[in-house]
Design a protein around this nucleic acid. Sequence first.
DNA 1: CGGAATCCTATATGATACTG
DNA 2: CAGTATCATATAGGATTCCG
Lengths: 114, 114
Amino acid sequence: MFLADCQARLAFDLMTNTWNAVVVWSLRHGPRRPGRLREEIGGISVKVLTETLRRLEFNGLVARRAYAEAPPRVEYELTDLGRSLLGPIEAFGEWAFHHADEVMAAQDRYEPAP
Amino acid sequence: MFLADCQARLAFDLMTNTWNAVVVWSLRHGPRRPGRLREEIGGISVKVLTETLRRLEFNGLVARRAYAEAPPRVEYELTDLGRSLLGPIEAFGEWAFHHADEVMAAQDRYEPAP
DNA sequence: CGGAATCCTATATGATACTG
DNA sequence: CAGTATCATATAGGATTCCG
């Protein structure tokens, strides 16, 4: 189905960035301003959040709206395309919820081959 | 549901490595030797494949079997835990299959904000 | 406030050569 | 063949500073 140069590699390029999925997910309930996104996400620098939002915008997952006010106000929200990704992302969230303990147990058990 | 330090961040750490999901997916049909994995995946170096397999092993997704033969033979296969990840991975593959054209169209349309 | 610019560091990846 | 070691590079990420 995928591997090498096929289309799913595209989806992987979208999701293998550390923050892409996290930011998409944090926009699931509606438009958000960058400052609030940073609070909700936690541990992401201004620079990386901006870069991530630009990348998501470039790929059509997120729309940016700037208002002509002072101080400036900007909001980001998911496009229809971005919302269509919430299901697959949630599938991973569900997986983690149900299997995180097994992963951690495996990590404890692990020892390198001789 | 996730963000910050919760469990789904664990799943993200598993999937945000460029090759983790690709390698798991390439093992979906059963045990594979490293050489064949490299052929099927394409574009992955020996070093990175080895590192990825070690990481998947460490997290309990993949099992390694070495046979005492000459020349050496090694096989990797998914554990039950690894197989449980195929569903979520496939969800992304399906998404890509259905939306790749929209993403590419968005990329063509994109122009940076002034 | 949003974000661009700069600098610095850590990590990821690849190519190559070498070992058992 | 499987895997390690080494080197070299590219990318990601963070911290800080400055601007409109």
